[in-house]
C-alpha cells in the first residue's frame, strides 16, 4: 500500500503546472520562481508555504473559501482533492480570477479530470500514460506524463491536470468527493455564474 502523501506534496503535484501557465501566459511568475517550485515538487528543497502563497495567491484564496464553506482546514488532503477534482473546473467555467482573461484552449487545458490509464510507456527514463476519459470527461490530452505516479498501471484511474498525472484515485473516493462537495452553496454558486456567462 502506498504511503499517504503529505498535503504540501499533493498541492505541489496538482499545482506545479499552473505556474508554467502563469509564467508563459500571464508573466506572473519568473523562471527562477518556477524553478524553485519545481525543486520543491522534486523534494530537492523544503516546502516554503509563504513562497507558495505568493506564487499561487488564487489557489490559496479558493482553498480558504472551500475550507470556510466545509468547515475544514485548507491544506488537508481532502480539501486539496475537493478543490482540484470537484471545484477547480467550476472556478474556471465561472471565469474566476485570471481565467476570465485566458484563452479558451488554455482554460480547457487547465481543467482537472479523472482518466483511465490504458497504456504505460517508458522512454528515456520518463513514464507516460496513454489515457481515456472516465465517465463523461472531455479533454484533448492523448496522454500525460506519469513521472509523478510511478505506481500507476494500465486500468488505474488517475487524476490529470494539464500534462501530468497527479495521483491515482479510487472510484468510491471520487464518487464520495463529488457527492459531498457538489452539494455545497459554493459549488452551485460557481455553476450558476458559469451558466450566466454562457447565456
Amino acid at each position: 500500500m502506498t504511503a499517504a502523501m503529505a498535503p504540501d506534496e499533493l498541492f505541489l503535484r496538482y499545482a506545479y503546472s499552473c505556474a508554467e501557465v502563469q509564467r508563459d501566459h500571464l508573466h506572473a511568475v519568473t523562471d527562477g520562481e518556477l524553478a524553485k517550485v519545481r525543486r520543491m515538487l522534486d523534494r530537492e528543497d523544503a516546502t516554503d508555504d509563504a513562497f507558495l502563497k505568493s506564487v499561487y495567491p488564487a489557489a490559496f484564496r479558493r482553498l480558504e473559501l472551500i475550507a470556510k464553506e466545509t468547515k475544514s482546514a485548507p491544506l488537508t488532503t481532502e480539501t486539496l482533492d475537493a478543490y482540484f477534482i470537484v471545484y477547480h473546473n467550476a472556478f474556471i467555467d465561472a471565469g474566476d480570477g485570471s481565467y476570465a482573461k485566458l484563452p479558451r484552449w488554455t482554460c480547457e487545458y487547465c481543467k482537472v479530470h479523472v482518466a483511465r490509464v490504458t497504456e504505460v510507456l517508458v522512454q528515456d527514463g520518463h513514464r507516460a500514460f496513454r489515457i481515456e476519459p472516465y465517465e463523461h470527461a472531455v479533454f484533448r490530452q492523448a496522454g500525460v506524463s506519469g513521472d509523478l505516479v510511478p505506481e500507476a498501471k494500465a486500468g488505474d484511474l488517475v487524476v490529470i491536470h494539464q500534462g501530468w498525472a497527479v495521483k491515482t484515485v479510487e472510484p468510491s473516493y471520487y464518487e464520495r468527493l463529488k457527492k459531498a462537495y457538489q452539494a455545497t452553496k459554493l459549488f452551485s454558486g460557481l455553476t450558476q455564474k458559469a451558466q450566466a456567462l454562457r447565456s
Binding site: S17, Q123, Q141, Q162
Partner: peptide, 10 residues
C-alpha cells in the same frame, strides 16, 4: 503541447 518531453495533445 509538450509535457516532460512528450507531445500530449494538439
Amino acid at each position: 503541447l509538450v509535457q516532460a518531453k512528450m507531445v500530449v495533445q494538439t
